[in-house]
C-alpha cells in the first residue's frame, strides 16, 4: 500500500503509516440544536481517529451530514462525512463534495443509502442517479483528475480520503469479494464493514479479500457494534436486513442477567476487536455504538486501542 498521503486526513495518515486505525460514529440530531453534536463530540473525543457522521441514516430526516461535520470539526474531532445516493442527483452530490471539502472535511464515505421505505418519509421520491460505486469513481476523478463527471475542470480539487462500506454478510455471499474488487477498481481507499457478529463468516470473506490481494489496495476496517441488551441483539438478528447474528451470541446475551447485559455486550465487542486484530488484512476497526457514544472510549480502552496515536 502506498505510504504517500493524498489528503490531509488524519485517518489516512494513520492508515498509511501502518498503524491500526479506529473510527467511531456520530448520528446527527433530529433538530437544529448543535449542542447535541457538541455533547456527543465530548464523549467521543480522543477515543478514535475519525468519526462517521451519518447521512439521514435509515432514511429518517436529521441534521445534514455536512453541517454536522463542521460542528464536529469546531470541537476538534475529525469527521468522515457520509454521503448517500438516495437523496441527491449527481449535480447535488458533486456540489456537496466541493462544499464539504471547502469547509474542511477530509474524509468521505460513499454509500447507496437505505431505501426510504424504512424512514419517516416513505412517500418521498428516491433519486439513485448514481450508485455507491459510481459515486466512488466520481469523487476520485474529481480529486485526482480534477474533472467533474460531466468532463469540465474542477478548479480547486476536493482533497478527500475516499471510503465506502461493504457488507460481507449480505447475499449472495460469493459476490461479496468481487463487489469489493469493483469498489477498489472504482477508486475506494478504505472500507468500513457492516457490524461483525459472525466472525467465522467474516473470516471466510476476509480470506477471499486477501487471496485476491485486495487488502493491499484498500484499508479494511472491521465494523463492531456492542449490544446494549438481549432485546437489541434479537432486533438486529431479526429486523435489520443484511445482519448476521449467530445463535450462540444471542444465547450468550439471553443467558446474561438483564442488569449485566450491557456489560456483556461490551465484552463481546472487545473480544471481536481482539480477534479482528489477529486477522490478516485488517487495518482497523469501526466502532458503531448506536446512540451509546459514551461507550466507545471504554471499548477502545479495553481493546488496548488507547491512547490514539498523534500524527
Amino acid at each position: 500500500m502506498s505510504v504517500e498521503c493524498k489528503t490531509d486526513s488524519r485517518l489516512e495518515k494513520i492508515l498509511r503509516s501502518g498503524q491500526f486505525a479506529v473510527t467511531g460514529e456520530c448520528g446527527p440530531p433530529r433538530g437544529a440544536d448543535p449542542e447535541v453534536i457538541r455533547k456527543k463530540c465530548g464523549l467521543l473525543k480522543n477515543n478514535a481517529d475519525a468519526f462517521n457522521i451519518t447521512d439521514n441514516q435509515t432514511s429518517v430526516v436529521r441534521m445534514s451530514s455536512i453541517s454536522s461535520s463542521v460542528i464536529m470539526m469546531q470541537e476538534g474531532l475529525e469527521p468522515v462525512m457520509q454521503m448517500v445516493c438516495r437523496d441527491r442527483n449527481r449535480i447535488a452530490i458533486q456540489s456537496d463534495i466541493l462544499g464539504g471539502a471547502a469547509l474542511g472535511v477530509k474524509n468521505m464515505l460513499c454509500l447507496s443509502g437505505d431505501h426510504q421505505k424504512f424512514g419517516d418519509h416513505p412517500a418521498a421520491k428516491n433519486v439513485f442517479d448514481l450508485d455507491s460505486i459510481q459515486l466512488i469513481h466520481a469523487v476520485r476523478t474529481m480529486r485526482d483528475e480534477g474533472k467533474f463527471m460531466g468532463g469540465d475542470e474542477v478548479k480547486g480539487v476536493p482533497k478527500l480520503f475516499i471510503g465506502a462500506a461493504e457488507n460481507p454478510f449480505a447475499d449472495p455471499f460469493e459476490i461479496r469479494v468481487p463487489r469489493l474488487a469493483k469498489k477498489v477498481a472504482a477508486g475506494v481507499e478504505f472500507i468500513q464493514t457492516q457490524c461483525i457478529f459472525n466472525l467465522k463468516k467474516f473470516g471466510e470473506w476476509m480470506k477471499g479479500v486477501v487471496d485476491r490481494g485486495l487488502h493491499e489496495k484498500v484499508f479494511v476496517l472491521g465494523g463492531v457494534t456492542p449490544f446494549k441488551s438481549f432485546g437489541m441483539a434479537r432486533y438486529m438478528a431479526n429486523n435489520v436486513p443484511g445482519m448476521d447474528v449467530p445463535e450462540e451470541l444471542l444465547k450468550r446475551m439471553k443467558d446474561t442477567p438483564k442488569e449485566k447485559q450491557a456489560e456483556e455486550g461490551i465484552k463481546i465487542a472487545v473480544e471481536t476487536i481482539q480477534q479482528l486484530r489477529e486477522m490478516k488484512g485488517i487495518s482497523g476497526v469501526h466502532i458503531m455504538a448506536i446512540e451509546w457514544e459514551e461507550k466507545v472510549g471504554e471499548i477502545a480502552q479495553k481493546a488496548g486501542l488507547l491512547p490514539r496515536p498523534t500524527v
Binding site: R86, S112, H115, D131, S132, E166, N167, R179, P241, G242
Partner: peptide
C-alpha cells in the same frame, strides 16, 4: 428497488 447498476446492495438477504 434502488435501480442500482452495480448491485446488489448490503440489504439483499
Amino acid at each position: 428497488s434502488k435501480s442500482l447498476l452495480n448491485g446488489p446492495c448490503g440489504g439483499s438477504t
